[in-house]
């Protein structure tokens, strides 16, 4: 379905994830983050977001454990940066699909 995020009309799925990764930009990321209660994306947030996009582009099946061993943040920091489900929320902000992971 279509949704206007940061003055841009984009297609999202029923959970609000962008269906087209090419639609993503930093303003969209900021607005999705606000919807998730993260009002300010810090450098740490951006580092994780960009890392997730890179990994996703490389075809990696993402998990919280991998983010924890990325060298950017440990698992505790990852949960603190993206409260309420770190991988699913960070992925939404990063404009990639929700990872199908049980870990």
């Amino acid at each position: 379905m279509l949704k206007t995020i940061a003055n841009k009309e984009v297609d999202v799925n029923e959970e609000g994830y962008l269906t087209n990764k090419g639609d993503w930009n930093e303003d969209i990321a900021k607005e999705i983050a606000k919807e998730l209660g993260i009002n300010d994306l810090t450098e740490k947030h951006w580092a994780v977001i960009k890392w997730l996009r890179d990994q996703d582009a490389g075809g990696t099946h993402l998990s919280i454990r991998q983010v924890g061993s990325s060298g950017l943040v440990d698992i505790k920091e990852f949960y603190a940066l993206f409260p309420g489900g770190p991988l699913k929320n960070a992925s939404k902000i990063a404009g990639i699909m929700k990872p199908m992971s049980c870990l």
Binding site: I64, Y79, P83, G84, G85, P86, K88, C102, L103
Partner: peptide, 11 residues
């Protein structure tokens, strides 16, 4: 472990 960790990762 998967059940507990899964709950945490879902918020």
């Amino acid at each position: 472990l998967v059940l507990a960790n899964g709950a945490l990762s879902e918020g």
